[in-house]
């Protein structure tokens, strides 16, 4: 049985991949969300600040308009536990910058060129994410 969510997932994935393909072939950049934002935050990427800022602006504004226009009751369903949110945000911020990539940079762009670093990073963060869900949901009941 093919679920509708899988088709939406695949279609959305194709859009993500086309965005990454365009950013590589036109701008010559790897489309990694954590690297593009992180370079603005720690100032290491200020030489290309306009390009990074424009990418982030598109990433924030256009899905915002689409969500309000076409997805009634859109929600991230994120936990209301602010302690968990702060801990998770810190882990994601530090982890992606230490590893030099996240789901888009290592997962999409890295795997697509069969980069060993991208493949290893993706396997590790998927495993760590699975362990975190099992630990905090099933054993501790926090999420």
């Amino acid at each position: 049985m093919i679920e509708a969510e899988w088709i939406w997932g695949f279609a959305g994935g194709l859009l993500i991949g086309c965005a990454a393909a365009m950013f590589l072939l036109v701008n010559g950049r790897i489309m990694g969300a954590s690297g593009i934002l992180g370079g603005l935050i720690d100032r290491s990427g200020w030489g290309s600040a306009a390009e990074r800022g424009a990418f982030v602006a598109g990433l924030v504004l256009v899905p915002g308009v689409m969500a309000y226009a076409f997805v009634p009751g859109v929600s991230t369903h994120i936990t209301s536990n602010l302690g968990v949110i702060v801990a998770a945000g810190l882990l994601v911020g530090i982890g992606t910058r230490l590893a030099n990539g996240c789901t888009s940079g290592h997962g999409v762009c890295g795997i697509a060129r069969l980069s060993l670093r991208g493949i290893v990073a993706t396997v590790i963060y998927l495993l760590a994410g699975g362990v975190a869900v099992v630990l905090f949901r099933h054993l501790l009941g926090v999420i």
Binding site: G89, L91, V92, T96, L98, A99, I124, A128, G129, F136
Partner: peptide
């Protein structure tokens, strides 16, 4: 970094 990121992503 990937261990920390994965943990936060799961959380």
């Amino acid at each position: 970094g990937s261990v920390l990121f994965g943990a936060g992503w799961g959380l």
